[in-house]
Amino acid sequence: MLHQVRGVVAREVGAPVEVLDVLVPDPGPGEALVAVQACGVCHTDLHYREGGIGEDFPYLLGHEAAGVVEAVGEGVTEVAPGDFVVLNWRAVCGQCRACRRGKAQYCFDTHNARQPMTLADGTPLSPALGIGAFAEKTLVAAGQCTKVDAGADPAVAGLLGCGVMAGIGAAVNTAPVRRGDTVAVIGCGGVGSAAIVGAELAGARRIIAVDLDTKKLDWAEAFGATHLVNARHADPVEAVRELTGGFGADVVIDAVGRPETFKQAFYARDLAGTVVLVGVPTPEMTLDLPLIDVFARGGAVKSSWYGDCLPGRDFPELVELSQQGRIDLGAFVTERIALDEVEKSFEKMHRGEVLRSVVVL
């Protein structure tokens, strides 16, 4: 059986997205059909539209989603119809060398649903990050579904599917920030603000937010930053050093992902400190660093893939912390919009007006 739903589709590079009829099949073996309740508008969706991730147009956009499982295919035991779930884009295999070593967060053979979703004329769609959740229903691998407390707000819980988890995880899992650490975060959009939340949760004593935009610095302060650096008016490296007794921060998180911000992060850390790259570079970017500086400064330089998260462990825990009021995930939701407002939300994102627009279905 095919389910006809409305979905947001990017037909070609740079063209405005369209709300079109999408055909979603019943789940096959290992798959789950999910009725989407909410999906955040992430910068990654814009990257897809602009051709910055691949060329497999048309794309069914959307991936920061929560909803209810409607049906499951043969052999599925992880979830059942009626479960409230957050979707993730890293369904692990359980068999590769990373999984066998107990490091499933680095799984080298993640997978998605095998059956394609299509346009009404049969044209196969490429779902963003294997999810495609700017749609009333979507088909995913069952392992992409993580059951969480059904009392959670879907618009809030769904954000754990990408940006918020990436930022919190960069601080808590990848670095990891320890109690009493000094932390600097470069770039205070959604991911950077989430890294600030993670640093505070981990017990950092000083959290320095760095950005060019005063509005984003205001967001950072609301999320727990103790010091603010406007990089339009001060050198970020010198400012971080001045705020850390001349030494540099124990952990510096680059949530932008550009060569210049990575260099700032590299030189703003203390000797033997840690740099975490969680902002996603584009393929043409290159980095030029004196190798002697890499050697002489010691410490660690790490990349954070999806906040090095384990969805089955991290999603329920963060939802519970949010419900207890210990972290304010709801503050990431700037506005709630309809499917046909996604293109406008991209424009707001460009202008830095929103942390997250969230499509509510």
Score class of each variant (00 low, 15 high):
Val34Asp: 04
Ala35Met: 03
Cys42Lys: 04
Cys42Glu: 09
His43Val: 04
Leu46Ser: 01
His47Lys: 14
Tyr48Leu: 05
Arg49Asn: 13
Glu50Val: 01
Glu50Lys: 14
Ile53Cys: 00
Phe57Pro: 03
Tyr59Met: 00
Ala65Gln: 09
Gly67Glu: 01
Val72Ala: 02
Val76Cys: 08
Thr77Tyr: 04
Pro81Tyr: 11
Pro81Asn: 05
Phe84Ile: 10
Phe84Leu: 03
Val85Phe: 07
Leu87Pro: 09
Arg90Val: 12
Arg90Ala: 13
Arg90Asn: 14
Ala91Gly: 13
Gly94Met: 13
Gly94Glu: 06
Gly94Tyr: 05
Cys96Gly: 10
Cys96Ile: 05
Arg97Tyr: 14
Cys99Ile: 05
Arg100Thr: 09
Phe108Ala: 13
Asp109Arg: 13
Thr110Ala: 02
His111Val: 00
Ala113Arg: 11
Pro116Lys: 05
Leu119Thr: 00
Leu119Gly: 03
Leu119Pro: 07
Ala120Met: 00
Asp121Ala: 00
Gly122Glu: 05
Pro124Ala: 02
Leu125His: 12
Ser126Val: 03
Ser126Leu: 08
Ala128Lys: 03
Gly132Leu: 07
Thr138Pro: 07
Leu139Tyr: 12
Ala141Cys: 09
Ala142Arg: 11
Gly143Ser: 12
Gly143Ile: 10
Cys145Arg: 06
Cys145Asn: 05
Val148Phe: 07
Gly151Glu: 15
Ala152Asp: 11
Ala152Met: 15
Ala152Pro: 11
Pro154Arg: 10
Gly158Asn: 09
Gly161Arg: 03
Cys162Ala: 01
Ala166Gln: 08
